[in-house]
């Protein structure tokens, strides 16, 4: 199931980046740890048959590049506008994954994005992370979920 979740999030990220940012040269690899001091962490809380968080770690340069592409404007600092735009992208990616999961009779909902780092004190049954490399920079996804009921994923 962890592999399926990993693939679902990578595929959704790939699709959203391609559609919204016109990025096509995208690759991914598993990441035990993603070291980047200067990054914006966006947590998307998930509730329902799966519960936990997906943390999207956007390095500052990646964040600025993403929002510059979307807005057509030069964006030079991470402010409320940038944080909100990349939070919405994280929300869109996660929503697309939930749509895929729903075809496996798994019902989950998203709570609004929150800017925060992962809670290292919590235990998770399903835990995986990946780095997604694009021409405008890296993005790391940290998936931390617990199963609330048996499922088919």
């Amino acid at each position: 199931m962890v592999d399926n979740l990993y693939k679902a999030f990578v595929d959704a990220t790939h699709n959203v980046f391609h559609l919204m940012l016109d990025l096509s040269d995208i690759s991914d690899h598993p990441a035990d740890e993603f070291q980047c001091d200067d990054a914006v962490d966006i947590a998307i809380p998930i509730v329902g048959d799966l519960e936990g968080d997906v943390i999207y770690r956007f390095p500052v340069t990646t964040s600025l590049n993403m929002v510059s592409i979307m807005s057509g404007m030069q964006v030079e600092e991470v402010d409320a506008f940038v944080t909100s735009a990349i939070s919405e992208i994280a929300n869109i990616i996660s929503g697309n994954v939930l749509t895929v999961l729903s075809t496996n009779e798994m019902t989950c909902d998203l709570l609004p994005p929150v800017q925060r780092q992962p809670d290292e004190n919590k235990e998770y049954e399903l835990k995986t992370s990946c780095c997604i490399q694009t021409t405008i920079g890296l993005v790391c996804l940290d998936i931390r979920l617990n199963r609330v009921k048996a499922n088919h994923v």
Binding site: M20, V67, V82, S84, E88, I92
Partner: peptide, 21 residues
């Protein structure tokens, strides 16, 4: 101001995704 900056960021990403997808 902060509210409107947040609104602008979300609106931008939402609109692009909604129309493009």
């Amino acid at each position: 101001e902060q509210l409107m900056q947040q609104f602008g960021g979300k609106l931008l990403a939402w609109l692009i995704n909604h129309v493009a997808a």
